[in-house]
Amino acid sequence: MTDEQILTQMQAIKDEEANLHPLVDNSVDLVELEKEYQNGSAAFQNKIRNLSETHDRMRRSRGDGNCFYRAFAFAWFERVMLAKNKPELHMNAVKAMEESKDLLLAAQFELLAFEDFYLVTLETLQNLVHYTPEELLAAFQNDEISNSIVMHFRLMVSAYLKTHQEDYAPFLEFGQTMDEFCSMHVEAMGRESEEMMLIALTKVTHVSVEVAYLSGNENVDEVNFLPFLPDTEPYMPPLVLLYRPGHYDILYRKSHCLEGVV
């Protein structure tokens, strides 16, 4: 087989898997998560039971390597959409997005190459003032819109890392440049994210996020929450993401279990 045939075949396998799940799913009761582990280890079951004391719903993001970016974007945009009585959330989000354009230019990205992704993301954000939850979900389930948003988020992360090399280059593998790291692990669609990308995205968007690590560690019954904070004072409660090795989904915390969530 030639390289091209191998690549086509790999893509076909991915597509088949992907079509089983929407890019972003309806939210479901946390009981659904418990069901996944009903025949699993006690460690998982105990952790989920503990988690359900403070959280009541979750929303799955497709496991296509973009789940972190898509989950983060959806959770953030949904928060802004539901807080129609708090216009400052929307203003801050639009401002962060508009500033990202200058950041990308400062990181030497060609306007031509990123403008379409940027405009789709900004337009979706601007639409939040009149979107219903169903319309937001439909936008994130639309390949073109959803992937443009993911792509813009990836480029924001890459641009942040490239313009803050002095802070992040020490974490790279020996001999790897930040440009190489970003093109290989950040900018390419489908590449999974690691902690450095979470930190960068938090800083760029000024949105804090807490990641609930659900692991099979037998020694603890509590889910470990890891906070990621922006440099500025957070202006809203953190987004909550559920992490299981290799995958991110969205969690809904009870205290701001908002009305009208699909």
Binding site: D3, E4, M151, S158, M189
Partner: peptide
Amino acid sequence: VHFKTGEICLDILKSEWTPSWT
């Protein structure tokens, strides 16, 4: 480059492609 088909083996055209190329 494949002599008969003209196929090009260049990482950025395959696994290392990123949408920031034009």
